[in-house]
Design a binder for these strands. Structure first.
Lengths: 158, 158
DNA sequence: ATAACTGCAAAGGCTTTGCATGGAT
DNA sequence: ATCCATGCAAAGCCTTTGCAGTTAT
């Protein structure tokens, strides 16, 4: 049986950081791209400039850059993590068919937690909100639209 | 290089279903438990009643029961899936330290998508909202509270 | 007989980690 | 000299899948 520690480990940052070439290129490529790529997409992008970079280095640097607050790691429901070069808080909208993610043009709902005070035993820290839909390409795709119809009840408002 | 199909496959349901003993016990145990267990937690629960059940059977039935609309699969950001015996839509609150999940005592925000109409290129289908916090046990745990302080900027309002 | 289902074990997909090497201070 | 960072490969974790055998219609 597998028994994973659900406790999230504190992201460990070394005492000092070096802005190595790899780290710099990873950061630059992520900042250049606003499609919120997955680690392997970013790996391919970085590889065009640093052909010998390894996927492990990409993952390690994405973790460190997140701990530094330079980027965000978007932990997407039920799929690969995606990374966002913009560190400030904002919501996203995700295509349920192809996985594409874009920024959602809506300001953070700062008072959302207020509705829970007094009615939950939790100490509330924040919330995560993600919109779901079909991106423009998939909106034109019949198969994707059919998929969305059947997926709607299961995907939306969970 | 790994290249996964990000397209979510339509959950396939067989033409006919049999309410086998395994399926029934899995459903009963999930309904009995409101802690939104992971597949392996549920496996342990089911195993007390059906010692020879396999983890694969648990996963297969959870998928089928979800397709039938009997239960919900909660695809949690960046961790194991959790399962909910209550099929109707509602939000959840999750402990960022131990992973525990409970229902959030707040009604669905049905008009949330309205704010996006006209300002996004997506066809909007729905949203997913999850509250983050510390459960009562972890609220009393110093280490968890320290963790929450450092994790707050990264966890909240993504 | 057919089709759904199961247990078992293996494979898959994404992410993390161990280790020897390299580079900066 | 020290310590951080890298490339490579292996391991880890959760989930899915192939297959042969079982059960209900």
């Amino acid at each position: 049986m597998q028994t994973r520690n659900t406790t999230q480990p504190e992201p460990e940052r070394p005492a000092k950081f070096r802005m190595t070439r790899q780290r710099r290129v990873i950061l630059e490529e992520l900042r250049r791209e606003n499609a919120h790529p997955t680690a392997d997409m970013l790996y391919e992008m970085v590889r065009l400039r640093l052909p010998h970079v390894s996927l492990g280095t990409v993952y390690r640097n994405l973790e460190i850059l997140t701990a530094l607050g330079e980027i965000q790691t978007l932990e997407i429901s039920g799929s690969q993590k995606r990374y966002d070069g913009i560190p400030h808080k904002h919501y996203h909208i995700r295509c349920i068919h192809c996985g594409r993610m874009d920024d959602a043009p809506i300001a953070p709902l700062n008072r959302l937690e207020d509705t829970l005070y007094g009615s939950t035993v939790y100490t509330i820290i924040g919330h995560r909100l993600e919109f779901l839909g079909l991106c423009p390409e998939c909106s034109r795709n019949d198969e994707a639209r059919r998929f969305a119809e059947t997926a709607l009840p299961a995907e939306a408002t969970l």
